[in-house]
Design a protein around this nucleic acid. Structure first.
Lengths: 214, 214
DNA sequence: TCGTTCATGTAACGCGTTACATGATTGC
DNA sequence: GCAATCATGTAACGCGTTACATGAACGA
């Protein structure tokens, strides 16, 4: 009786926290914010939205769009704007605080990372370090199984394996840099009481890491 | 009435082409051959196997294991060995020949690549080039959407985006190297009539690419 | 006025996992 | 004898997509 998906729910809540939106726009932001990692369709988004409303995290608003000729009488629906309720905000903050093992997994992690801007520093650290240890664990297994089976595998399979491992190693290095930067660490900037025009940290634009052009 | 999944079916057929196996071992090989990219559970493997038998691509064999005390009377099943039929082999070769757009997609591509050892050179080329153009297309979109939204995104989201793009760019470079190597190209070695102990190309162990230690 | 993009929604299906149930084999 | 791991299977569920249906708003 639900239609609740961890990561979709999380991302919807997170985006709506920044500003109210209708479904259509939400979907686009979803697919750019989470980047390469995830693409959702309306077939999952709209039902999810409905569920979240039922749960009380969201409210629908009639979207007083007022087109050219402001429709005179009732019955003017379509274009529903979704707004996060206080309960919804609270719930999201709660999700944000959890840094358990699920949050180390590929897509979960990407979603978590996308909302690091609203995450407290210590949770960021735990997530980053958790992710790293997860990957290192994975690397161990790959190395082990590679040693065991190296002989029996043909060249292309081997090359695929090698490329896969290199990708993982690369992400570990990325995490290392991020963790180091976090440790050197800028100010905490807790999720509440934040000023959207806050432009402290102008030296590097506040980016988590200063690096050369890729 | 089916339980057929493109990639699982393909991989099962491909592994069984090399040698008959029972489900348990098949699953392990599946998860190492396809590497990081995919992990299947028994819950999908066994039903798939059954379906493939129904279709005639596979046959079950009683696995004359003959444990210490060779069970005297009938009723000794469990440990079923699956063997590829002639029809199954034919079907697999057919799948191998298709290099359409589906084969450029992430997991599909990995599966295709894993069996490049049994794929003809021209198909390999088409798959490699198709994959590359797919990724380049993807990069274009990402760049475009990044230009459009750069301002409104916070630092972490941006960093995620950047890292994602870099990963894709890295795969493109990998593909470039592979394509170049293919072009320089070793012998064709068609899928049939191959000798498993063939050790021509000793200079680099026949690896698709010679490179320094990563 | 006609095509495109915006906008919302649903039903059917695809593909896979989890959790469970069952039992043989091996090693200590 | 007991634990671990090998080995096979199934039913229920999760999570998401495709394809479809519908219609408003906008620009040429």
């Amino acid at each position: 009786m639900s239609k609740r998906s961890g990561i979709l729910e999380f991302a919807v809540l997170g985006l709506l926290r920044e500003s109210p939106m209708h479904g259509y726009e939400l979907r686009k932001r979803l697919n750019t914010s989470l980047g390469v990692f995830r693409a959702f369709s309306y077939g999952s988004l709209y039902p999810c939205l409905k569920t979240l409303v039922t749960l009380g995290w969201l409210v629908e608003e009639p979207a007083v769009d007022l087109g050219p000729s402001a429709a005179p009488l009732a019955g003017r629906r379509a274009k529903i704007v979704y707004r996060l309720t206080a309960a919804g905000k609270e719930h999201f903050e709660e999700l944000l605080a959890h840094s358990g093992p699920d949050a180390w997994e590929d897509e979960h992690f990407a979603a978590r990372f996308a909302f690091f801007g609203q995450t407290s520093k210590d949770v960021r650290m735990r997530v980053l370090e958790g992710r790293r240890s997860r990957l290192e664990e994975r690397l161990e297994k790959m190395r082990a199984s590679l040693v065991r089976t190296r002989e029996r595998l043909d060249d292309y399979t081997l090359e695929l394996q090698r490329h896969g491992m290199e990708s993982v190693e690369r992400e570990v290095r990325w995490l290392n840099e991020l963790i180091e930067t976090e440790r050197a660490g800028r100010s905490e900037r807790p999720a509440d009481e934040r000023d959207d025009n806050d432009n402290t940290n102008q030296e590097n634009g506040g980016r988590p890491e200063a690096r050369g052009t890729a």
